[in-house]
Design a protein around this nucleic acid. Structure first.
Lengths: 225, 225
DNA sequence: CAAGCCGGTAACTAAACAGTTACTTGATGG
DNA sequence: CCATCAAGTAACTGTTTAGTTACCGGCTTG
């Protein structure tokens, strides 16, 4: 408890300032708070998340959190925005138009499923935000156009498939994306209640692989002529 | 504030006891608390729900809530259990085996979608429970066998369809149900973020009807030979 | 008819919480 | 070398919260 006595580590030897091992590092502190907040909000929701817990997880204190992010709500919005930027950025690297229409849709389905699988915190944040009827997301300005790229590219692939006669004429880009997202989101985000009530462990690798194949199968079956 | 003076309503005239307009009505108070709790938990989640708010919504006070349900967590579990009993009971009245296999699956898809649409609080409670990894549902004993009936009946319909050669041999009852539930759940529970980021109001009747048809189409397309 | 129980009220308590304030430490530049 | 400012700490504050206690009043039953 009492280490106010001559502790050698208290006053650290001077370091050349270009080194970043210093305790004073605004960038790192900011990033640590953001990452800690992502986990805390994902695990406990907006109502359950604790500001003290975030500060402790980040290895800092509340003062810094309020200094960098204003208040709990602004921090939460930042976390949500970054989560969306994450998936949309990864999506852009796909270039689904480079393959045949069928392969392109399959690629998008696989990518979405695997991204959801590897980023449970993203699903959780979506759930929290929807519980509150997109109260905070609605306030975000910079996010509006982030998503149009996805629909645009998907639309092109569908059009090409229709021209080639492999897709039905009624296939709609938003409906196709919602179908893919539905099948991945529900399976993963509701795995706990589903595993409990149906007595089957959905997160088991064999079941995960089966569902991955199922998503691709269902998506293509719904738009193929 | 001060109504300790001679308020005529304070001491009410005696009523015959068979009448149920009395202020003393354990059944009604219990039911009112349960309904108020359902709304409060659905709107705010476990972490955001307030015990005071539930008591106020029920037109009673906290003392009664703790008297009838023990504590906040037990009340929440009761709410969740009742929600599951609600959908499974309604499902049993369907008798999907009475139609042709194709019609039976279509009926189940329609029923599920419409039930989700009419019971947003059920979807919300599922979301909350999954955020907490089914922490409370796991403790519920009476719920284990409630769901087996659904899978059993669905399994029979699929088998019949396979015999008749209209369904593919790989069709699995749990996968079919998860497909139906996924498409309904995601669309409705995530409508707020989706409407925001894609700029299309998903709750509009025309879009709802289109998605209803889409669910039936996708479900059947995924299992038809 | 009185004793006691059950449905009900309201004020209280201890802990937890978001947000603030007063202060310390260290780097930088004149 | 000292003035200044940014990074960081820790203790504090007012409010909210789940849960409790002390009490009220009317119905039932011996």
């Amino acid at each position: 408890m009492n280490d106010s006595g001559g502790n050698a580590e208290r006053k650290r030897p001077r370091r050349p300032s270009q080194e970043r091992t210093s305790q004073r590092d605004p960038e790192r502190t900011r990033a640590a708070i953001l990452e800690a907040a992502t986990r805390e909000f994902a695990e406990n929701g907006m109502g359950g998340a604790r500001v003290d817990a975030i500060a402790e997880r980040a290895g800092t204190n509340k003062r810094m959190l309020y200094h960098y992010f204003g208040d709990k709500e602004q921090l939460y919005l930042k976390v949500l925005e970054e989560a969306y930027v994450g998936i949309r950025t990864a999506e852009r690297a796909l270039h689904i138009g480079d393959h045949s229409p069928e392969e392109g849709i399959g690629e998008l389905a696989l990518f979405t499923w695997r991204y959801f699988l590897q980023h449970p915190e993203f699903l959780s944040l979506l759930g929290t935000e929807n519980l509150h009827r997109a109260r905070w997301l609605r306030q975000s300005i910079r996010l509006k156009e982030l998503h149009s790229h996805l629909i645009g590219e998907l639309s092109e692939v569908l059009e090409q498939g229709k021209k080639q006669g492999v897709f039905i004429e009624t296939a709609d880009p938003l409906q196709v994306y919602l179908t893919i997202a539905s099948l991945g989101y529900f399976y993963l985000s509701n795995q706990y209640t589903l595993s409990t009530i149906f007595g089957r462990d959905l997160i088991e690798p064999a079941h995960l692989n089966a569902w991955e194949r199922h998503i691709v199968h269902v998506t293509l079956a719904s738009i193929k002529r």
